[in-house]
Amino acid sequence: MSTTIQTHDLSMRYGQTEALHEINLTVPEGAIYALVGPNGAGKTTMIKLLMNILRPTVGGAEALGVDTQRLAGEVFNRIGYVSENQEMPDAMTVEALMDFMRPFYPRWDRELERQLVRQFDLPMKRKLKHLSRGMRMKAAFASSLAYRPELIVLDEPFTGLDPLVRDELIESLLERAPETTIFLSSHDLAEIESFASHVGYLEDGRMLFSEEMTVLAGRFREVTITLSAPAPLPPKLPSAWLLAETVDCVVRFVHSEYWGEASEREVADLFPGARDVEWESMPLRSIFLAIAKTGRTQNHAAQTTAGDGRPKA
């Protein structure tokens, strides 16, 4: 399967602030890739770099086989981009927007345009500046989907929208999914869990992981061990065990590298007196929370200890 987006050590600094640090990412053709992470993680910067709105400090990227720093003009016939904070030509009516956009795109599908307008119930005669936020996003979607782009890039497209509008937009996206690659950013895990095929997690400008949803869901397990008597945690836990804690006879942690029997044997070796071990698969939200908490714990530890691990004076 060929790749639609690929980055190589993509980095971006704003003065002293490092917004992105050596991001290496591959988005295969046909994927619905969700870039998630908390606010300020660098998602929008990443998307702007991919769309050549910003230029990277170091590294590079390709989209549709084109160096993103050369992304301009005709290649945007193949890319649809919608962003929550995009400035629209507010003085235009929806109809004028469609009329203006149409000649730019040789592959503009008039029938699809009508279908999207009907589907979104867009008021054609109303100016964009007089539309609600949801309606503006719908107009932006319609004008970005009607030419059947090969790559759809969406920056926080559903933020602040009511559930009905969000579902309408997701539905319209999924209708396009078979013929396109979708790359979208979000900080709302619930909204992407249902349809994303791939996911990448960005925090403080660093990509913590980037993989297929099924693989991700498969390798994370919430583990609960019931011991016959209270016991402290072993001094050296495997690095794949996250957020390990013990309460009386119960030990809990998140296993981030679950490989079936091998992982279960590893637990049995470390806790020979275990009466019971439960392995539960985790929803995406729990996985991210575990990762996020681990990241913050590590950051906190790094800030409060010296280089040799001793607490800072």
């Binding site: 910003l54 003009g73 005709e74 945007f76 904070n85 995009q86 629209m88």
Partner: peptide, 12 residues
């Protein structure tokens, strides 16, 4: 960085 036209097939 937020202009609508930046990601449309305008040729400069």
């Amino acid at each position: 960085e937020r202009q609508f036209w930046l990601t449309r097939p305008y040729e400069w």
